[in-house]
Each structure stands twice: as structure tokens, then as C-alpha cells.
């Protein structure tokens, strides 16, 4: 059966996780990507979240 995907939740989750990781890096003085540390890690988080929503192993649930 064709899996039901949730790209919006994946995108938001990735962005939120990216912001969190970027803030931890800043607070611990690890600006690994220079002046674009926060912006880039947030965007990458969103992209990876989107990919995750499509490529993650599907969850099996009984039909409603």
C-alpha cells in the first residue's frame, strides 16, 4: 500500500531541530560555519527534515 507522507511536519521538525542545534553551537562558542552558522544549519535542518519525511522507514498502523 502507498505510504502517507507528512512533508510539512518533516520540514517544520527539521527547521526546529536546526535552530536548536545552531543555538547550542553558538552558546558553546562553536561557530563552525562562520558568519552563516545559524542560517545555514537551520536551512539544512529543514531540508533534511523534508528528506526524512519522504525517505524514513514507514510506520505501520492499523487502518482507521
Amino acid at each position: 500500500m502507498r505510504p502517507r507522507r507528512r512533508p510539512i511536519i518533516g520540514l517544520v521538525g527539521g527547521l526546529v531541530l536546526g535552530v536548536g542545534v545552531a543555538l547550542i553551537l553558538v552558546f558553546t562558542s562553536l561557530a563552525i560555519l562562520g558568519t552563516y552558522t545559524v542560517i545555514f544549519i537551520t536551512i539544512v535542518g529543514g531540508v533534511l527534515g523534508l528528506i526524512w519525511a519522504y525517505m524514513a522507514p514507514p510506520r505501520r498502523v492499523p487502518p482507521a
Partner: peptide, 11 residues
């Protein structure tokens, strides 16, 4: 949120 974003298959 990422955990909840996994694809769902009804079986």
C-alpha cells in the same frame, strides 16, 4: 516532530 513526520502505511 521528525519522529511524527515518518511516513505511515495502513496495514
Amino acid at each position: 516532530l521528525l519522529w511524527a513526520a515518518r511516513p505511515v502505511v495502513a496495514v
